[in-house]
């Protein structure tokens, strides 16, 4: 049954490509979510989010190797990420309060190198496997009945991303902490002067970003192995943020999905003409084109600069 001259198998294949893109996109969204959290609270672009993902999941796997059971390793890693958040806040963010955005960005690049170096120095550099007990092959029921090949791991990643986003959005929107957080993001000085505990808020945000990093790392790690390449993969969250807008949680999600789909479809349908490999740069070029059209991103607040 061809549609517009396309045979049915081609159409199914196209849907499969799009679906694979969407699911890969949720992975990018998860990384982007960590960036957005910190950007929302402190207008700091945290370049180290990718390194935090690597640091968290490598530590998690390391603790498991030391013989800790899954749940305990998870909890210990969460404590570790809170400690990292605390140290970051006290040693990097606080001394640089009030500096320009570019300075903060450079400082977080430094932080990224500290974290990825520390993780490798402590746990070693070899590639680890991470088995979450979720199979990474097509779900048989879907494959048999609909002819669509989707792995259970991808679906889990999608669900986890969805839950995280809903929980975080609700926290931001309806809790006192979330209100304080938005106040701090708006004007740290004014927020502090009316008694909002600036340090606690920042600590909370960095810890949450650390936990998001751990979850992201576990998803990525189960898919691609726990290895240094995770840091480079996390760089792809940058174009995601540009498309979605830096200060918007829904933006991170939609941006991630767009990048995932565009990247996959381009690679499958356009890539062969160039010998493949275009997914390495296509997201960045897409981001540039997007910048020309809408610099603040799809969901971001309009950027207003004053002299």
């Amino acid at each position: 049954m061809p549609i517009w001259g396309w045979p049915m198998t081609e159409i199914l294949f196209f849907f499969e490509v799009v679906l694979a893109g969407l699911l890969a996109g949720t992975m990018y969204s998860l990384v982007a979510l960590g960036f957005v959290l910190i950007y929302k609270a402190s207008a700091t672009f945290n370049f180290a989010q990718g390194a935090m993902v690597f640091f968290a999941v490598l530590s998690f796997v390391g603790f498991m190797e030391l013989g800790l059971p899954f749940v305990l390793a998870f909890l210990v890693t969460i404590l570790l990420m809170i400690a990292v958040g605390y140290a970051t806040e006290r040693l990097v963010i606080e001394p640089l309060t009030g500096q320009s955005e570019d300075t903060m960005l450079m400082a977080t690049i430094g932080l990224a190198f500290v974290l990825q170096g520390l993780a490798q120095a402590v746990w070693g550099v070899e590639v680890r496997r991470l088995d979450l007990g979720i199979p990474d092959f097509p779900i048989p029921w879907l494959a048999d009945n609909l002819g669509i090949f989707v792995s259970a791991l991808d679906v889990t990643a999608g669900v986890v991303a969805g839950v995280l986003i809903i929980v975080l959005s609700l926290l931001f929107r309806f809790t006192k902490m979330g209100l304080g957080l938005r106040a701090v993001a708006d004007d740290p000085g004014a927020a502090a002067s009316i008694g909002i505990p600036l340090k606690n808020i920042m600590l909370l945000v960095w810890s949450t970003a650390g936990i998001v990093a751990l979850v992201t790392g576990m998803m990525w790690g189960a898919r691609a192995g726990v290895q240094f390449a995770l840091v480079d993969l996390a760089l792809k969250a940058l174009p995601v943020l540009i498309i979605g807008g830096f200060s918007s949680i829904p933006g991170a999600i939609v941006g991630g999905l767009i990048i995932g789909v565009v990247e996959k479809t381009l690679e499958v349908y356009v890539g062969p003409y160039f010998g493949g490999g275009i997914e390495g740069w296509a997201p960045y070029v897409l981001a540039i084109l997007f910048l020309l059209w809408r610099p603040e991103g799809l969901f971001g607040e309009k950027i207003i600069r004053r002299v």
């Binding site: 040693l91 001394p95 450079m106 400082a107 500290v114 974290l115 170096g117 520390l118 490798q120 550099v125």
Partner: peptide
């Protein structure tokens, strides 16, 4: 001591120096 560990330590030092210089001597 493994060469990869040394290169990891190198990354930590570079990163830490970046932060220190930005704070104390931009």
């Amino acid at each position: 001591i493994d060469a990869t560990i040394i290169s990891a330590i190198e990354q930590v030092v570079f990163g830490a120096l970046i932060i220190l210089f930005l704070i104390y001597e931009p």
